[in-house]
Design a protein around this nucleic acid. Structure first.
Length: 743
DNA sequence: ACTGAGAGTTATATT
DNA sequence: AACTCTCAGT
């Protein structure tokens, strides 16, 4: 029975609609029925979304009936924060706002028994899932040389994304590869079930199964989520699409927001078609285009437009802005990646000298994480504060994952993956041979590995020493399992982890690396304490739940005055006064793949578009002729994307400009630089005095501290020194960059 | 059972 | 260059 919904005029909602442009106001106030908001970059999308939720609440809709789905925790948190700025916080906090994965994990805890899980299921991240694949391949005797586990895992994940279960996959498997995959797929799925664990894909798929399991469940959630908002709709995959549509089917109050031009997650199953087809799915849909950009200069928008024009598949739209023309985009050509990094650093230090811009106003964006290394070195050398966002997450470090697995085991002892992970961390004298006996016993009796551990006494082949070790381990876990609800979760975790001996192990190894790990565990534990201070009623499951779905980028402190380095993907949704996009070379950006479909190239172009539109005032593009890859130098031509930019908006900034050295440069030179600059070097490095140095001298480096010069080589620009630092050992330094002082 | 050396593999992006 | 895995030695 559809609710009778009353259109409310804007008059009593002046506050919420204040300061919004006409289209934005419509996007906020059309609350009934399907609505597609095509929101161009910088068009105030988040503002519209949050105001819309606030508006719904003000119209008397129970916040508990509002579901707002995002892709990142950060986006979700920002949404909740900003909603609480408009409506009372108790109302804002009742809105179901979160990532697909976290919201569904929460719902699945309640519905677990309908789909054959218990509510304490574990969540496996990509690494955990890979470990399961490897283990299953081992048991099945499938050669991992021939079938790399990574590729196996991604084929399985791809199938799950398409909602092809192992039965269906197996039925349609033709090639040898597919047949082998189907065998692993089946074993993998059964292992996850046996472990009472779900991977990321399962969080979506099982939600569908739960909704389809009975009309009651479907009805329940359709009634609960009467108003649905989906952010970044262009990034939804098939499973997400189906869940959304199942939930929205009854009330059809579904509002999706997205920008097809910013669809950059095809590789993980996103179907851009979902947004392109929204009007087919909902013929009655209202469509609103937000085309006024509040972020970038006219020049930057023009550059973005000249690039994206080369894509064929897109919803027609034209961004415009009232902002000033702004500076032309600067193009920097560099001989190699080291030089590129040095130039970027130099650029930033020049620009910040005047005091008008601070370090925090800069972002350096790149295609692959590997590029961050050269940049990082240059920033250290140049003494410029920076922070890397994304990359190897704190939560993916071995020691942190080990501790996490200890905790998972406490909540879900069926989780064999976690058990195997920690059983010899620290070494307990339970080796491979013993483990094999225990596994065989578990299989023979159809019990979990943990249960087999508990009944180790019955395993004849197990040597007494191992039996004893197993017994000690089990009683440790059981001791704290018994307490899990009673004492404070933090002190429980602290005592438990201490007693496992993992911290002591790292302390005893006593190397720089191991003390680092020890520190990380400490930090992790204080993170736990923090969490339970903030969430007083939370239980362990809640903590583990959010943790598995957390990424580093959600956590990093971005408020400091430092330059931000990140991949272009991580930059989506962010904005910065000055943006540098580095590594614009064929093969790197667009990134080369074996077979490049035009669709993949279009996705790379959209990624470039996303990068360009992050900039508010200034944009710098850089490329290197030579780059260190796989420990070797490779040369490549400048990115084809560069030649797509309208020439009128490009300037070659002499003060940061090197000269041209390679063949491939010719095109670029004719196009952009042909103004008499010939092959003269024009290093932009601030001239600085290099003190007279000799081998054997003691020197001080701003970052590495004190060290002794071992050898010196080269002259002038190329002067190098090998220095043995007290802190980090031997380093090779270019004297022109490393500001060495005599000690 | 555990350690370390050497070989082999790997670098697109993320919930 | 950096990481993981395997295998032989202890």
């Amino acid at each position: 029975m559809p609710l009778k919904l009353v259109k409310v005029e804007a008059e009593n909602s002046t506050k919420i609609l204040d300061g919004l442009n006409g289209e934005q106001q419509k996007a906020v106030s059309i609350i009934d029925g399907p609505l597609l908001i095509v929101a161009g970059a910088g068009s105030g999308k988040t503002r519209v979304l949050t105001h819309r939720v606030a508006y719904l609440i003000e119209q008397g809709i129970n916040p508990y009936n509002i579901l707002a789905l995002t892709f990142t925790n950060k986006a979700a948190r920002e949404m909740v924060d900003r909603i609480s700025g408009i409506v009372p916080e108790y109302a804002a906090s009742k809105v179901w706002a979160g990532t697909f994965h976290s919201i569904f994990a929460r719902l699945l805890r309640n519905e677990a028994e309908h789909i054959g899980y218990t509510s304490s299921f574990s969540i496996y991240d990509t690494d955990d899932s890979l470990a399961v694949v490897k283990a299953e391949m081992n048991t099945l005797g499938i050669n991992q040389q021939q079938f790399p586990a990574q590729a196996m895992r991604s084929r399985i994940s791809w199938a799950k994304n398409q909602l092809i279960d192992w039965q269906a996959y197996s039925a349609s498997a033709d090639t040898y590869l597919q047949k082998q995959t189907s065998v692993v797929y089946e074993a993998y799925e059964k292992a996850l079930r046996a472990n009472n664990a779900m991977d990321f894909d399962d969080l979506l798929n099982n939600m569908i199964y739960a909704l389809r399991a009975s009309d009651d469940i479907l009805e329940k959630y359709q009634e609960r989520f009467r108003y649905i908002l989906v952010d970044e709709y262009q990034d939804t995959n098939r499973a997400q699409y189906i869940v959304i549509n199942l939930l929205a089917k009854k009330h059809k109050n579904i509002c999706v927001v997205g920008d097809d031009a910013q669809s950059i997650y095809r590789w993980r199953g996103a179907e851009i078609q979902n947004i392109l087809d929204f009007q087919k799915d909902y013929p009655a849909a209202n469509v609103i285009r937000l085309e006024q950009n509040y972020r970038s200069t006219k020049t930057i928008l023009a550059v973005a437009d000249s690039v994206i024009k080369h894509n064929r598949k897109q919803i027609p739209k034209k961004l415009w802005t009232k902002k000033h023309d702004g500076e032309p985009v600067s193009l920097l050509s560099c001989p190699d990646d080291r030089d590129e990094a040095a130039k970027i650093v130099n650029l930033i230090s020049e620009k910040t000298k005047s005091g008008k811009t601070g370090y925090k106003d800069f972002a350096v964006l790149y295609r692959t994480n590997a590029q961050s290394l050269a940049l990082e070195n240059a920033f250290k050398m140049g003494n410029i504060p920076y922070v890397i966002l994304g990359g190897i997450s704190f939560y993916k470090r071995k020691e942190v994952k080990d501790v996490l697995s200890y905790l998972k085991l406490l909540v879900n002892p069926q989780d064999s993956e976690s058990l195997l992970r920690v059983i010899n961390e620290p070494p307990r004298g339970i080796g491979n041979t013993s483990l094999r006996y225990i596994k065989i016993f578990a299989e023979k009796n159809s019990i979990s590995l943990y249960n087999a551990f508990q009944r180790a006494n019955e395993i004849e082949d197990l040597p007494p020493k191992a039996k004893n070790a197993v017994k000690n381990f089990i009683s440790l876990v059981e001791k704290y399992r018994a307490d899990i609800k009673a004492s404070s979760p933090y002190s429980l975790a602290f005592m438990y982890i201490t007693e496992t001996g993992i911290m002591q192990m790292y302390k005893e190894i006593n190397t720089e690396d191991s003390l680092d790990r020890w520190n990380n565990i400490q930090q992790f534990l204080s993170d736990i304490s923090d969490y339970f201070n903030r969430n007083e009623n939370a239980v362990f499951e809640d903590y583990l739940n959010q943790l598995s779905l957390l990424s580093d980028i959600d956590e990093k402190d971005t408020s400091q005055n430092q330059v931000k380095l990140m991949t272009l993907h991580s930059a989506k949704g962010l904005e910065f006064p000055v943006v540098v996009i580095a590594g614009l070379e064929e093969g790197l950006f667009p990134l080369a793949k074996a077979e490049m479909h035009f669709e993949e190239e279009e996705e790379e172009r959209r990624l470039f578009y996303v990068g360009i539109t992050r900039a508010q005032e200034e944009l710098y593009l850089t490329y290197a002729n030579r780059r260190l890859r796989f420990g070797d130098y490779s040369t490549q031509a400048p990115s084809k994307f560069l030649s797509e930019i309208d020439k009128n908006y490009i300037k070659t900034d002499k003060s940061y400009q090197h000269t041209f050295i390679s063949q491939q440069e010719k095109i670029m030179r004719e196009r952009y630089f042909d103004d008499g600059t010939k092959n003269e070097y024009n290093y932009s490095q601030v001239p600085q005095e290099i003190p007279e140095l000799r081998a054997g001298d003691w020197v001080i480096h701003s970052h590495f501290g004190k060290g002794k010069i071992l050898t010196l080589a080269g002259t002038g620009m190329n002067a190098k020194a090998v220095v043995n630092f007290n802190s980090v050992g031997k380093k090779v330094l270019m004297l022109q960059y490393a500001k060495l002082k005599k000690a």
